[in-house]
Computed example of a mutant assay.
Amino acid sequence: MSTPLSELSAAGVAVWLDDISRQRLRTGNLADLVATRDVVGVTSNPTIFQKAIGSGDQYSEQLHDLKVRGVDVGEAVRAITAADVREACDVLRGVYDASGGVDGRVSLEVDPRLAHDTERTVAEARALWWLVDRPNLFIKIPATLAGLPAITRVISEGISVNVTLIFGLERYEAVIEAFLTGVEQAVAAGRDVSDLASVASFFVSRVDSEVDSRLDKIGTPAAKALHAKAAIANARLAYERYEKIFGSPRWAALAAQGAKAQRPLWASTSTKDPSLPDTIYVTELIAPGTVNTMPEATLQAFADHGSVSGETIRPNYADARAVFAALATVGVDIDDVVETLEAQGVQKFEDSWKQLLDTVAQQLGRSDAAR
Rank of each mutant, 00 (worst) to 15 (best):
Q355K: 03
D208H: 11
T269P: 13
E339T: 15
E240P: 06
S99G: 09
G289S: 02
I159L: 04
A186H: 05
G147M: 11
G331A: 14
R314S: 05
E7M: 11
T47S: 15
A235M: 14
A238H: 05
L215D: 13
E173S: 09
V175Y: 10
A150F: 03
R366C: 05
L254K: 05
P249H: 05
T329K: 15
V308Q: 06
A31Y: 03
Y172F: 14
L254A: 11
V163K: 04
A233C: 11
L299F: 10
A326T: 15
E243K: 01
S60H: 04
Q185A: 11
D333H: 00
W16V: 11
G74Q: 00
S248C: 13
K354A: 06
Y239F: 13
V346W: 00
T271Q: 12
A259K: 11
K217H: 09
D111L: 03
S367P: 04
G310T: 11
S268Y: 08
K354T: 08
E75K: 00
G310S: 12
L215H: 10
L254M: 14
V40Y: 07
V77C: 00
S6I: 06
H227R: 13
E339M: 08
L254F: 09
G345H: 01
E61A: 15
T3E: 06
L33E: 04
R37S: 15
F203S: 14
V193D: 12
W266C: 07
R366Y: 02
L131I: 10
V106Y: 02
I280L: 15
A297G: 07
D273Y: 15
N234G: 05
A123Q: 01
L66Y: 00
L30Q: 07
A197K: 03
T312Y: 05
P264I: 08
I141N: 02
R26T: 14
H64R: 01
S55P: 04
L265C: 07
V40M: 08
T283R: 10
D65Y: 01
S60Q: 04
A322N: 11
A82L: 04
S268I: 12
I80Q: 00
G28T: 15
I176R: 02
L265N: 04
K244V: 13
I155T: 15
V40Q: 13
G365C: 02
A369E: 08
P135V: 11
I286K: 02
I159M: 04
D84E: 06
I280Q: 14
R86D: 13
R134I: 14
E170V: 15
V193Y: 12
N29Q: 14
G219I: 11
D278Q: 15
L148R: 00
